[in-house]
């Protein structure tokens, strides 16, 4: 069973699940940056993994057999290229841990079970403290009206539960934009293809408000807040992008021929 993988063991395009990190800036930087056309300099911090994203725009790609509510499917209806996401944003702060994204009492739900997958979605971000006055999902609803979650530092820290990106994806979230991610959350987001974990150097969780209308242009690595009229540069998602677009590592590996196209 391992042979097809072994033969491609070092396929460089599959080897980019973890982005290279910059030195941390805990206090952020001066805000209110209105970014002109994306500056190429910003991507230079990353190794070849993400630096190549700019030359390989996603426009030509199509979602191939994505999961029902995966990021790619939600973004591109009927095979449209998943290059931009548009919708309302929900804003959270630093260190949103997996217990706030999906509290442990709901971990009895098994994500690979379709009915329980949907139910997980209905509990997404239910663990946020009462200080978050706006609910992420309205009572008696199972989906969120916020397609994009905006966070601060270290989003998704804590547990390795894959239920966390799954709950967000199942609730209808397409992308999270944060200053940084906890390692396992980032990886689980990519492996499952549930949400795009996008990064920005700007502390946008202090500049955007829940309910603002935003657009993410993936190919241009840009986030536009239409409510405030500001634009922000995102770090390129790099080779993780096509994996998420395909619907996760298995779908991507099949699509690119790394593993046989269909299991028994």
């Amino acid at each position: 069973m391992a042979t097809p993988l072994q033969s491609r063991a070092l396929n460089p395009s599959f080897a980019g699940l973890e982005p290279c990190r910059r030195p941390r800036r805990f206090l952020g930087r001066p805000h209110g940056l209105r970014l002109a056309p994306p500056s190429p300099g910003l991507s230079s911090c990353c190794s070849g993994l993400s630096a190549s994203a700019g030359v390989a725009p996603l426009t030509a790609r199509k979602a191939v057999a994505p999961r029902p509510a995966s990021a790619a499917a939600a973004a591109g209806a009927a095979g449209e290229p998943a290059t931009s996401f548009h919708g309302l944003c929900y804003v959270v702060r630093d260190n949103i841990d997996t217990d706030q994204i999906i509290p442990a009492e709901y971990l009895t739900l098994v994500p690979s079970n379709p009915a329980e997958y949907e139910k997980l979605g209905s509990y997404a971000l239910i663990g946020l403290p009462e200080s978050y006055e706006t609910r992420f999902i309205e009572p008696n609803e199972t989906k969120t009206k916020y397609k994009i979650v905006i966070g601060g530092e270290n989003f998704g820290c804590g547990s390795s539960r894959e239920h966390a990106p799954v709950a967000l994806g199942a609730a209808g979230v397409v992308a999270v934009v944060a200053e940084s991610y906890a390692r396992i959350f980032f990886r689980n987001s990519v492996s499952t293809g549930e949400v795009y974990p996008l990064e920005t150097d700007v502390r946008i969780c202090e500049e955007c408000r829940t309910g603002d209308t935003v657009t993410i242009e993936l190919a241009e690595s840009k986030l536009i807040n239409h409510t405030t009229g500001k634009e922000y540069e995102l770090k390129p998602i790099g080779d993780a992008g096509p994996v998420i677009e395909a619907g996760g590592i298995f779908a991507y590996a099949r699509k690119t021929g790394m593993i046989p196209s269909q299991a028994a």
Binding site: A2, I184, S191, T192, G248
Partner: peptide, 17 residues
């Protein structure tokens, strides 16, 4: 620590990237 998808992959292949 890893997620379910990586674990599902490792169950079948004994490998992880």
């Amino acid at each position: 620590g890893i997620g379910n998808t990586d674990a599902g992959f490792a169950l079948g292949t004994g490998k992880i990237l």
